[in-house]
Design a protein around this nucleic acid. Sequence first.
RNA 1: GCCAGCGUAGCUCAAUUGGCAGAGCACCUGAUUUGUAAUCAGGCGGUUGCGGGUUCAAGUCCCGCCGCUGGCUCCA
Length: 594
Amino acid sequence: MSNSKATLPVAEPYPLSTLRHSVSHLMASAVAKLHPGVQFGFGPAIEHGFYYDFDLSEPLNESDLRKIEKEMERQAKRSQPLTKITVTRAAAKERLAAKGQHYKIEAVDLIPEGEDITFYSHGDWEDLCEGPHVDTLTRPFAFKLLSVAGAYWRGDEKRPMMQRVYGTAFWTQAELDAHLKWLEDVKQRDHRKLGSELDLFSTHGEVGGGFIFWHPNLAAVRRCIEEFWWEEHTRRGYKPVYTPHVSREQLFSISGHLEKYSEMMYAPMEIEEQPYRIKPMNCPGHIMIYKTRGRSYRELPLRWAELGTVYRYERSGVLHGMLRVRGFTQDDAHIFCTPEQLASEIAGVVDLVTKILSAFGYEYTAYLATRPEQSIGEEDVWTLAIKALEEAARMSKLPLTLDEGGGAFYGPKIDFKVKDALGREWQNSTIQCDFNLPQRFDLTFTDHDGKQKRPIMVHRAILGSMERFVGGLIEHFGGKFPLWCAPVQVALVPIREEHAEYCKKLELELQSDLFRVDAMLDPGHMNNKIKEAQKAHIPFTLVAGDREAADGTVAVRRRGTREQEVMPFTQFLALIRDLRARKALDLGEKALAR
RNA sequence: GCCAGCGUAGCUCAAUUGGCAGAGCACCUGAUUUGUAAUCAGGCGGUUGCGGGUUCAAGUCCCGCCGCUGGCUCCA
């Protein structure tokens, strides 16, 4: 959809968000025209566009959106200055009452005392709105309505549900087209789509939603990540622990989860007349190990790590592929340390986070989340912990963005947001100080003065959960995993059946070097096998015929290209060993070109 | 959980107002022996998500449940 008027002034003086806000007004006026009696909610600009909430007796569908777009175009073509008036509180309510806009009347009461109450109008439609807006809708711009979904009035699930129409707008058609192409790209890379296309994972109706089955291909990816994860942890003095999945309910009543978290926990099961629960968290288990004997300051810090699978009840409507599930494995670890050790321990975690996130080519931003209103603990402990987090960031040269009051009730934290290949943000890594659990479980250590003191506990996860991280990774790479963690690293294609023997030999050599290989030795045409290998995004396809078998060479075809380079097999092996050892994100294009 | 929508072969999708459930890919069998993205022929494959109802007749209409999708709320 575009509304281009060559003669009109350039659009640039307004930010894009202002245009989008104005286009949401245009959409509202179009809906008012097409659906008399509509009640309006809120209609702001958002990150990639805008929305407007409507209360309508009729549900809107895709074809309604097209009709609304047409009406918007019609209205935009007429001269449509957007004008602002300021009114008193009483007058505002009166104007809205006359139109029967009861949501908007409620919105008036949300405007703080002393602020101007303003209306913006275009044509014969007006809306309570603080603005700002573009001066006229006859400026050139391009827009599209994208989807309709339910949304509670004021985000409160106890209040009525309205219909939210999402759309987007840009100054030019070209920018809109680029955005729509981006949306298409997002859809193509959807981990659920790639998950079935590349035979990565599945969920099952007979199992229930939110439980992930990792197929061999994705299990291979996960194993590589886990090995990398354990290596880096071992280097930093972490020790693996294993804890049970089920425990007496009592454990979670001591930890406080039962009280604070019971909505997320599965119902108790009865074993010999005792209630037991499936764990929603790993921390109480690690604490049990800590408590088995007296602890000395000499053995702190203790760093215990576990890829711990937990189960949490999530409402059916929130489940989403691998990103939001009911059973998941956290890459969990707990550090028990003294207050003096806190800063350097956190710095160690920051180092680990940056090491692991960078290996996947993620850029990241860190946020310092401070004390929320509802929280526990002495003020000086909070201050100490926040200082430790800041100090650690300074030591690691990590810039922190302040997230005021965003901490957990039991302590402050640093959260990391990563940006993926499509520019979307994900939150996985978190470093949390906890004063609560050490107290609840009465954790102590004997200090050098012989006194019993309370350790601080640090909860931290780098990947967050294997499910969410790997799900995000599928989209980040678009299914094209770097060699080191690709499900299948090398495809072998014999030109004729008689070359199968040579390929078999290569397969065994690669396998003995722990490479994952798909030797395509079944009868069939080589072209078809090359197609299969490319569709599966296998990094390297090796084609071998008479010449290669005779010379001990391979014709190497890199993922995504049609060119081949013939090289000795030993040279190829050296290339992929190097790529694997470096965890290279590329396929050694430069090395090949040489 | 809520609002809206969807559910047909392993996958992608057809099936006119309710009127004999079909195609491509995948898979299996046979033929083909190939130098860089689809060789040819044949075959297998379905209680149309599950359960009920309306009807002479239901993939199609109605009700309930399950699952999925887009959001809201919530979250690793």
